[in-house]
Structure formats: C-alpha cells, structure tokens
Nucleic acid binder design. Structure first.
Lengths: 213, 213
DNA sequence: CACTTGAGAGTACGACTGTTCACTGACTTG
DNA sequence: CAAGTCAGTGAACAGTCGTACTCTCAAGTG
C-alpha cells in the first residue's frame, strides 16, 4: 500500500508500451486485421508468449490504441469553441488545432482513420463510441452560444456530428497530402467549415418544413 | 474476328467473376490486407494457382472491385441534380438514391468505406481517383444551376467534394445502422444536406475575406 | 531470511500462407 | 482434321502464423 508504483509493475507497463508503440509503427502500412501477434512482439523485442501477459488479442491491443489516440483529446474541442473571437478566428483556430495534432502524432490519426471502418469489430465500436462522445461534447459547447438559440437538441447533435466527421476527414486528408499539400488541404477544410457555419446561421430563417418521420 | 465472344473467354470471365464475388463476400467481415489468395480461391471453388490467370495480387483484385463498385455510378448524381424540383425535393431524392443503392449492393459500399483508408495503397488510390471524379461531376452539375452564379471553380469543387464525402459517410452510417436505424440515419443525412445547402445559398452574401494563402 | 509470485524466455506443435513447376484436356485456329 | 493455345489442376516448397507447454529468476511478501 505504501509503495509508489513498484519496480515490477513499472517494467510491465514499459513492455506494454513497447508493444503498443511497435504495433502503431507497423500499422502505418497495413491494417489491424492483418497485424500478426508475432510481428508485434518481434518489433517490440519480446517473445511471442509475452504478448499474452498484456493483451488477449491483437483486437484488444487495437482497442487500447484507440484509447491512447483519442482518450486525451476530450475537452479540447470544447475549450477551443469556448474561446472568444469572431467566428472566422475560431474557425482558423480549429483547423490549426487539427493540423498541429496530426503533425505531432500522425500515426495515431492514421490508425483511427484506417480502423474507423476497418475489419475488426471491437475496434470499430471503440472508435465509434469515442467519436460519439466528441460529437456530444461539441454539441454541448455549441449549445452555450447565442447562435444556437431555438435549436433542438437533436439538431445540435446533428451539427456536432457534422463537425466531428469533418475533423476526421480533414485529418485523413492531411495525412494523405503530406507536408507539401498541407496548405491546400487546410484551405479547403477552412472553406468547408465556413460554409457549414453559414448554414448554421441561417438554419432557423424559415420554419417551412416539419422533420417528423 | 467473326466469333461473338468465344466459349473459352466466356468461361474465363465466369471464373474471374466467381473470384470477385467470393472476395467481396469474404471482405464483409475482414479487410483486404488480411485477405488470403487461397482463401479466395477456396470460396470460389478453384485451385490457388488459377488465381494467377486473372490477377497478379489480391491488391489487383481489390482494384478490380473498386471499378466494379463505383464504375457504374458515374453520371448518376449529375442526372439527379439536373432534374427539376425545389431544393428540398432534390435533397430527398439524393438521400433516397443513396439508400437504394446501399440497400441493393451493401457489400460493395462496405468495401469502399473500409478500403478508402485501408492498408492497401493501390486500392486506396483507385478509390480516391473515383471519388475525385465524382466530386468533379457534382461540381460540373452544380455549375449549371443559377444558385452558382459568381462561384469560383475552386469553391465549386470544394462543395462537390463536400457532397461526395457526405455520401460516403451516409452510406457507411446506413451499413452500420442496419435496417432498424435506417430511417434515423436518413433523417440526419437529410438535415445535414439541408444545412450545407443553406450555407451554399449564403456563401456570397458578404465578400469580406480574401482566400489567397 | 525463506517463500511466493509472475513477467518473460524457450521449445514445439499443427495449420495455413504465397509461389513454383510440370501437367492435362477442352477449345481455337489454319 | 491436325496443331497449338491456355484456363485450370495437383503436388511440393519454404515460411509464417497462433497457441500450449515448461522453465527461469528477479521482485515482492511476511
């Protein structure tokens, strides 16, 4: 009860992280469903059997990678949206935020984009759950703004999801474009966001049509 | 020169199609980079060596599947957009068009969504090329409309890409939702499209900011 | 201090992979 | 009708895979 962490558990976590890092590196050029257990352990410098001490499956490892990639991003978008400034400034800040994160951890974002619709069920579900949380957070942040007066909760969630989907698309496009095409992709992303924001401002101009199915 | 097709080549095409069909079936629950050559031939009812008579790689088979899935869709979107009717009607028609195609050939769309960012380079590039063509076609169709007066070609392409990306997202969401959640997904897709269209109508309201990088 | 725990090593297993080679036999061609 | 083409067969190759064992020996425990 008194020990800080324990030398033993520290080493175990170190190996676990080595497995995660090795897997992330290998996943840059292939997808999770083709990632071999032995392949990961070879790259991590441990024996295949050691893998089982940390993960049951490569699928379980994938779920852990989802947590590592997206877990620390929560609250960040809400914080950016909560900052003051005109809508054009906030729009630029949002795109810059994505560019910075993608630039700092490209492998994580590539993994998310690749496995969002990939062949491993549990991983797909883990990513979907995280993105849904993001959409809810964005919707909550948007609800605080005066522009959202009169919006239904359902429509706010729709808009939040729209923003989140575009962040994923933008991140993926940035990775595909490489350093050279970054500026162009960022420009398109900004204009897309501006167009969506314009639509948002005129969403309640006419109440001409009911949405009940 | 006189023969219609030749019994021999007919049979060859039949086997080729059997390989494509078998692969598409297997790809419903895994991704292309983990698809084995033997696995495909086993499902198609031929020997592994016969595979090489039709494709060099499983990657080449993937590229052929992209062509099969998207090749026949060109021109369709432009046709829908070219029809008359108010914007709300056309919006409904677009969503219905997606729903119908996804319902008819779910495996094809699942494959496209999965491999769009998948681990096989040539297939990714083939899909990207096809989607770029779609975006250009949509942009060309939009350019014909009076609402596009004053739009730059660059902005039209941005908007076309936005619509195409949302079609892919909607198709993927429909597949994930299953028959039960179809109505809800379609409703969200319609509202998203409506919001984008609203933004489009107010895009040129103020010329307040230059886009030069 | 003796005793337990558990992360990782080492070995071995059967199953499966992509690719090669020589082959058959139905179709095509001159 | 004879000669040639070629889609598909069947056997064999060297690898890789996931998993089940036993074993070791440093860290934690009372």
């Amino acid at each position: 009860m008194s020990h800080t962490v324990g030398v033993r558990q520290t080493q175990k976590l170190r190996t676990r992280q080595a497995l995660l890092d090795a897997a992330l590196g290998l996943l840059e050029h292939q997808s999770l469903s083709s990632l071999g257990l032995r392949e990961v352990t070879r790259a991590a410098g441990v024996t295949p059997t050691a893998f089982y001490r940390h993960f049951e499956d490569t699928a379980a490892l994938g779920v852990a990678l989802v947590e590592e990639a997206l877990g620390s991003l929560h609250g960040m978008i809400g914080a950016v949206l909560a900052e003051t400034g005109d809508s054009e400034e906030r729009l630029d800040r949002s795109v810059e935020l994505i560019m910075r994160h993608v630039g700092e951890q490209p492998a994580h974002f590539r993994f998310i984009a690749r496995e969002q619709h990939g062949g491993v069920g549990p991983v797909r579900e883990a990513i979907a759950a995280q993105l849904r949380r993001f959409a809810e957070e964005v919707a909550a942040a948007l609800a605080e703004e005066p522009e959202s007066r009169g919006w239904s909760e359902e429509d706010l969630l729709m808009l939040g999801g729209l923003y989140v989907d575009h962040m994923v698309i933008t991140a993926s496009a940035l990775l595909d474009a490489g350093p050279d095409g970054e500026r162009e992709v960022a420009g398109v992303a900004r204009r897309r966001l501006r167009l969506v924001t314009l639509g948002r401002l005129h969403w309640l101009d006419d109440a001409d049509r009911a949405d009940a199915p």
